[in-house]
Amino acid sequence: MTPRPTRVQLFVTCLVDRFFPAAGHAAVEVLERYGVEVHVPSDQTCCGQPAFNGGFAADAAAMARTTIDVLSHSVDPVVVPSGSCADMIVNHYPGLLAGDAAYGPKAKALAARTYEFSQFLVDVLGVDPAAAPSGPTLAYHASCHGLRGLGLREQPRRLLHAVAGERSADLPDAETCCGFGGLFAVKMGPISSAMLDSKLDAIERSGADVVVATDVSCLMHIGGGLHRRGSRVRARHIAEVLADPGHD
């Protein structure tokens, strides 16, 4: 059995960095709470997923090499507060760089020590957060790439149930895509919007005060939709909820 890591690198992702820094700070706070020292490589950029999903393999590979360099200064585990970006590193970097003699092996090594945030907490650290005495009612939306690429089914739910207990709302079709899909949201705007509408309807019907996800990309989409509707429901990253479960 590998010893419990005491140090991690946080790859915060481009969206958290620029749009949702609070989720990044919360991730740091939670990881430190469980006794893990968090190192934030300062030259981190983007994992390359937008280019990869757009079919621009060479551009994606260039960004993958940059990210590999940034995260290979140490062999500490890499924690990513995004199922989608973690999935990119874990499941797509090795294939994308398979023909690259220098970076192919590095990609595999990085993939083997990269974890999505909730996955790291549950599967590696084995944490069991304390119940919060009060707080908002939570609904969990399962982000697609974490769910289907990394098998994140139980981990986030277990963490949220631990803090919220009975204050967990059942979100119908929680595992159906919110319609974000990166460039898809713009390129196929009308379809993306229609998918979002179904998701927002389900969220509002669930009776939750806060919708929680592992990915800020989905939350940016859902949150933007909720705000446009004037909904009272808030969208929050799982790290924020764990850092401050009483906050609504």
Partner: peptide, 16 residues
Amino acid sequence: WTASRDFPAPAARSFV
């Protein structure tokens, strides 16, 4: 995007 959804404003200061 903004035809049907609001877009979050970037933070004044990035996480890093």
